[in-house]
């Protein structure tokens, strides 16, 4: 038996990940609802995604779904639990305060960040390496306002 993932999404109550897939044997489209258990607004989305991806019951259906995508879906669920509106620019863990993490957890987060860091990295031995790389970006008048500045409730300054 094999299943071809087509689309996935979330259901909020009870929290679940929904997968639309094609059953390759029958050629039929089907929907599978995978409840997300023991998940709260404090949960680690990355770990929850990993758990789901490796779960005995669901993993055969999730072969075509990356763990990153599952993580994003969990983040959507978590944002909902936190009462945050959907469609924030990117459903990333940008609001988690890493200053509060223990050493191990922090190291783990940094390891995740390293993936992109290494991909974008220019090294000394690269032929096009420039030590003193300067790039000018448009002057501040030409710039658009940043959505991060919208909720200016803290007028401490």
């Amino acid at each position: 038996m094999s299943y071809v993932a087509k689309r996935c999404g979330v259901k909020f109550s009870p929290p679940a990940i929904v997968l639309i897939y094609e059953d390759a044997d029958t050629g039929k489209m089907r929907q599978r609802i995978m409840p997300v258990r023991n998940f709260s607004k404090f949960s680690d989305c990355s770990r929850a995604a990993e758990r789901l991806k490796n779960s005995l019951r669901h993993s055969p259906y999730l072969e075509g779904v990356s763990q990153e995508q599952l993580e994003r879906l969990h983040t959507v669920l978590r944002d909902h639990l936190l009462g945050r509106p959907l469609l924030t620019p990117r459903p990333d863990p940008g609001d988690e305060d890493l200053n509060k993490l223990e050493d191990e957890e922090l190291a783990c987060r940094k390891a995740q960040m390293d993936e992109l860091f290494e991909r974008n990295r220019r090294r000394e031995e690269d032929p096009d390496f420039v030590y003193d790389l300067e790039v000018e970006f448009p002057e501040s008048d030409a710039r658009e306002p940043c959505s991060w500045d919208e909720d200016e409730s803290d007028d401490a300054f």
Partner: peptide, 25 residues
């Protein structure tokens, strides 16, 4: 880099757009 981050402007501080990965600025 096309966006304004108001904090710097409000405090009258220079703002640099950089990348430790690719070395920009």
């Amino acid at each position: 880099t096309q966006r304004n981050f108001n904090f710097a402007k409000k405090q009258g501080l220079p703002l640099y757009y950089v990348s430790a990965a690719d070395g920009t600025n």
